[in-house]
Amino acid sequence: MTAASLRPAGTGDLDAVTRVFLACWHNSYAGLLPPDVRDLYTLDTARELWRRVALDHLLVAEAAGRGVLGMVRFGTDPDDPGCGHVYSLYVDPDSQGLGLGRTLLTAAGEALVARGYAQATLWVFADNTAAMAFYARLGWQPDGATRTEAAYRLPEIRLRRRLP
């Protein structure tokens, strides 16, 4: 893994978080999401999205001289309050494959365990084979739930895992 440290995000991280999100949204999802769906998020709309979530329960990974390289947002599952949930996991495309995603996801799991959760869920686009393989390597498995959000128009699969 690249030398990175994790810390809770603060309001001063909004621009960096927006940058990482947009890089993933427009580059990592280029072959997955239709162009008009990728165009939903511009600098302004992405900043508003991350401002709305108020950077709550968001950990960032940063490296000296490179700034924020990734982030994970987590909390309570909105459909199952007895379960933790990973809302977002993004790693800058230029930093993918270095272990940051695993590190961020592990840290989120530890924080969820500290809050008393024994398991967690997350949603992933069904056609995102790279993400599905990544999560499977870390013990996340489909639990049978699916959805298609109107804005994104692509099926998603809910994954679940027991937390260590």
Rank of each mutant, 00 (worst) to 15 (best):
T129P: 04
A111P: 10
L104R: 10
P8S: 08
P78Y: 04
A23H: 07
A131V: 10
T103F: 01
R51V: 01
A30N: 04
G70W: 11
V68W: 07
T129A: 15
V37I: 15
Y41P: 04
V124C: 14
A108L: 06
G31V: 09
V86Y: 02
T42V: 09
D94H: 04
V91Y: 10
A120M: 12
G109I: 09
T121S: 14
V60D: 03
R51A: 15
Y87A: 13
A4I: 05
L138W: 09
Y117G: 02
A130T: 07
A63R: 13
R38Y: 12
G12D: 13
Y135K: 03
A64F: 00
R73E: 15
L163C: 10
H85V: 05
A118K: 03
A107H: 06
L104I: 11
A108W: 12
V37D: 12
L22T: 06
A111Y: 09
D39L: 11
M132S: 08
E149H: 12
L138F: 08
A150N: 06
D56L: 10
N27K: 01
P93I: 04
T42Q: 11
E110R: 12
L163H: 06
G82K: 01
L69Q: 10
T45D: 13
S5D: 09
F21R: 00
P93E: 07
R102C: 07
R158G: 05
V72W: 09
L98E: 13
H57E: 14
T2A: 10
E149W: 12
A3P: 14
D77E: 02
L49M: 14
Q141C: 09
A151H: 11
T146Y: 11
V20C: 10
A114Y: 06
A126V: 00
L59C: 02
Y152H: 07
V37H: 12
L154E: 14
A30R: 14
L163E: 11
F125R: 00
F74Q: 03
V124H: 06
T129M: 13
L59H: 08
D15G: 08
R137Q: 14
R153Q: 14
A61M: 06
L122T: 10
S5P: 00
H26V: 07
L163Q: 07
R115N: 06
L59A: 01
